[in-house]
């Protein structure tokens, strides 16, 4: 118990000693970066719609093109620089997801097609897909139960 208290005291002391990023500034940068990515997405979306595509297909094209762009920027080592400046602005949009797929694939290529690229491509994106699918599955199950019991 006493040891725990000591550890807690040290942790608090370290927290006080450790410099942190300027939060308002970082938030502003994230705002601009994330906003810009979403704005770009909106441009693609509107363009697709203007070409007569329906809403879902337009959304699909938006994702695909943003992902392609992000993968290219990752390959040319530009995306890390954007993320360093923009923080969450580069992490939160779908481009961040694409980066999390492409970066381990590129980094671990030397470990082979299967154990390298194949396994490691999911190191960061895998959990996102797993928990996304699982959450929607649970929600879907709930929806189905409510539906067959005529509540909905």
């Amino acid at each position: 118990m006493d040891k725990q208290k000591q550890q807690q005291a040290y942790e608090n002391y370290v927290k006080q000693k450790t410099p942190v990023h300027n939060l308002p500034l970082n938030m502003a940068k994230a705002f601009v970066t994330g906003g810009a990515v979403c704005l770009l997405g909106q441009c693609i979306l509107n363009f697709c719609k203007s070409q007569g595509l329906d809403k879902d297909i337009s959304g699909g094209w938006t994702s695909i093109l943003l992902i392609l762009l992000s993968v290219l920027l990752t390959g040319f080592n530009i995306y890390p620089g954007i993320a360093k400046w923009g923080g969450a602005g580069a992490l939160v949009p779908i481009t961040g997801f694409a980066n999390s797929v492409a970066s381990p694939a590129i980094e671990y290529q030397k470990e082979g097609q299967v154990m390298g690229i194949g396994c490691k491509i999911f190191t960061i994106a895998g959990p996102v897909i797993l928990y996304g699918i699982f959450t929607s599955w649970v929600l879907g199950l709930g929806y189905w139960i409510l539906k067959i019991s005529n509540i909905l």
Binding site: N26, A88, G89, S100
Partner: peptide, 27 residues
């Protein structure tokens, strides 16, 4: 699109800077 997308990112930046949550967990 700009301000809503930007706002979501700015809010997530708080998590990134003020908690020990790793980027993967935030995603």
């Amino acid at each position: 699109a700009f301000w809503v997308g930007g706002l979501i990112c700015a809010l997530v930046q708080i998590l990134l800077d003020r908690t020990k949550l790793m980027p993967g967990r935030i995603m």
